[in-house]
Design a binder for these strands. Sequence first.
DNA 1: GATGATTTGTACGTATGTATA
DNA 2: ATATACATACGTACAAATCAT
Lengths: 231, 231
Amino acid sequence: MTLKTSGSLRKGTTVDTVVHTLADDIVSGRLLPGTKLDAKTAAERFGVSRTPIRETFGHLAAMGLVTHRPNRGVIVATMSADSLTYLYEAMAELEASLARLATLRMNSEQRQTLQNLHRESIHLVRDGTSDEYDEFNHNFHSLIFEAAQSPQLKRLAEATHSRLAPFRRAQFRMKNRMSKSWEEHDTIVRAIVAGDADGVARLMRGHVQTVSAMSAEFLAGHQPGPESADE
Amino acid sequence: MTLKTSGSLRKGTTVDTVVHTLADDIVSGRLLPGTKLDAKTAAERFGVSRTPIRETFGHLAAMGLVTHRPNRGVIVATMSADSLTYLYEAMAELEASLARLATLRMNSEQRQTLQNLHRESIHLVRDGTSDEYDEFNHNFHSLIFEAAQSPQLKRLAEATHSRLAPFRRAQFRMKNRMSKSWEEHDTIVRAIVAGDADGVARLMRGHVQTVSAMSAEFLAGHQPGPESADE
DNA sequence: GATGATTTGTACGTATGTATA
DNA sequence: ATATACATACGTACAAATCAT
């Protein structure tokens, strides 16, 4: 899974590289929520001074991937159950909007690609690993983001998705989640083909809310006593 | 040595202070799109060195308020017509979502407050200045954001609104805009009272799209040959 | 609680790259 | 096109705050 940088980053600078690497470490789960990132260690790891590292931390904080505590360094963002719910609610609305627009704007080639992608994913439900299904799932949603032709909404959705990624990772390991997910995708694809834009929005909202519930359940079981990083 | 703040030396760091101040200068229109911000001048203005200013610029770029051109400094973000359209589309969707949620979740006191606020705004349409109506308009939308009880969506909407503010300022000076705006608000308030959440979403989307068209029209007339700052 | 160690926050110097005469 | 001026990107030094004992 590749990470989309916000358009604000410079090209070809140290900061750019480090932001990418650390963001990916966080989004991919190699750095777990709550982990402290100290500037000195990071500076040594990347062979640069603390100055660009500090700037990097600023970017990561702006993305919501780390939390900055004045004079006390930064930690990988943790999430209270409430914060997670709020983030997922935003995600649900953004995805619903994008799905509605995609229904109205996608061309027939994109519609065909989506149907093919979806149809083939049934094999992953039977035989695939959760990581493989996760990758397919990312492609499925990305295709819809693209078809919506709304770059700014897409950016907000991707930024929100990055923040959720560390807490979303294990959902497809929950029992039956993959086949449930497939069924939800199925109703969405049918509604897209039927051109029922408002229906698609409603279904997509429900789909993301289901994922939200799964993640909350997983979080409750595996991460007792989280701190609020938000609001 | 530096501005170690007489009086309120709060928890925030220098960077936080400067970010807030400059962001407000941009959002409020005191710094116009295209204005160059150089680190040295800003450092002198705030009585600090260039290091925290550099970090500040990174934050502002992450917010989309300034554009960073590698090795060529930062300027207050300008906007192509397309970028503006995309930003407004995101705003429309976010506001529609918030309005829908607000309809479902607001309590009777909030509903009453909204109706009163709206009803009194008719006087501004007749006798008020565009600045006064703009302030009311901000309160109207803020009340809906609050009532939606969705902090993360609210944050996205506010961030998007900040980016639009420099390009939106003069819209209420366009002929009849204030009374048109009032009529749109009127249908929205009625739908909220009626509890028609999906209708509210649709109306709010249309309302913001109207504003979008106004801003585009204004931009076309007053800012020939804009540069793309985005996508 | 006090004190030393560690880490963050800020200042400033310098090399490099970009624009402009 | 070359040179000059200038702004940026990063490193290093020091001050201030936090933490560990």
